[in-house]
Design a protein around this nucleic acid. Sequence first.
DNA 1: TAGGCGATGACCT
DNA 2: GGTCATCGCCTAC
Length: 184
Amino acid sequence: MIVDVVANARSLLGGVLHGHGVAVRITEVEAYGGIHDPASHAYTRTARSEIMYGDPWRLYVYRSYGIHLCANVVTGPTETASAVLIRAGEVVEGIELAQQRRPAVAAVSLARGPGNLARALGLTLDDLGTYLLGADGVRLEMSPGEPEISAGPRVGVSRAADVPWRFWVTGDPTVSSYRRSPRA
DNA sequence: TAGGCGATGACCT
DNA sequence: GGTCATCGCCTAC
C-alpha cells in the first residue's frame, strides 16, 4: 500500500490535469501514505479527511493557511486513505485564462506551488470528490511513459519530514523550491 | 468552547 | 533569505 502510493505518485508525473478551461502537465508531486503516514491529513480520520478513505481517483481539495487551495488525487485502495498532492505543473492549455486568474506572473510560475496550481486551474471546494477519470469537469489524463524523476523530502511538513516522498521531473523549471517546516 | 497551528504565497530587504 | 498575513480545522479543556 505504501509502495503503491509512491508508484502512483511517480506515474502521475508527466500526466495532464484538466481544470476549468486550463490544463497542466504535472511536474511535481508528493506521496501521502494515509493511515500509516503521520504527515497525512488522513493519519487521523476526521470529517475533512473522510474523502480519502473512499474510492480512488477522486479529487481531494483542502484549504491551507485560510486562503490557498491544494489539490490531491486519492489513489486508494479504499480505506487506506493514500493520496498524492499535486505541487506544480506546466500550463499546456488555456494559458490566457490561467494568466487572467494569476495576473502579472511569469508563464513558468503560473502553476508553481500547490496553491498557485489550484488557482490557475480555477479549482474551488465545489470540485471536492470529482471522479478524475471521467469525461466531465476536472479530469486526469495519465501519461504513457515516465519522465526522468528526482526524489527528495516533502515540503513544509513537520512530521516525517525526512521521508523522500516528493518527486519531480528532473530539471523542470516549473518545479517549486524546497522549504523545510520550521517545526520539523 | 477556545486556542493553536498549518501539505503556503507574497512581499520586503 | 526572512517575515507575515489569515482562517478553517483539530485538539484539549
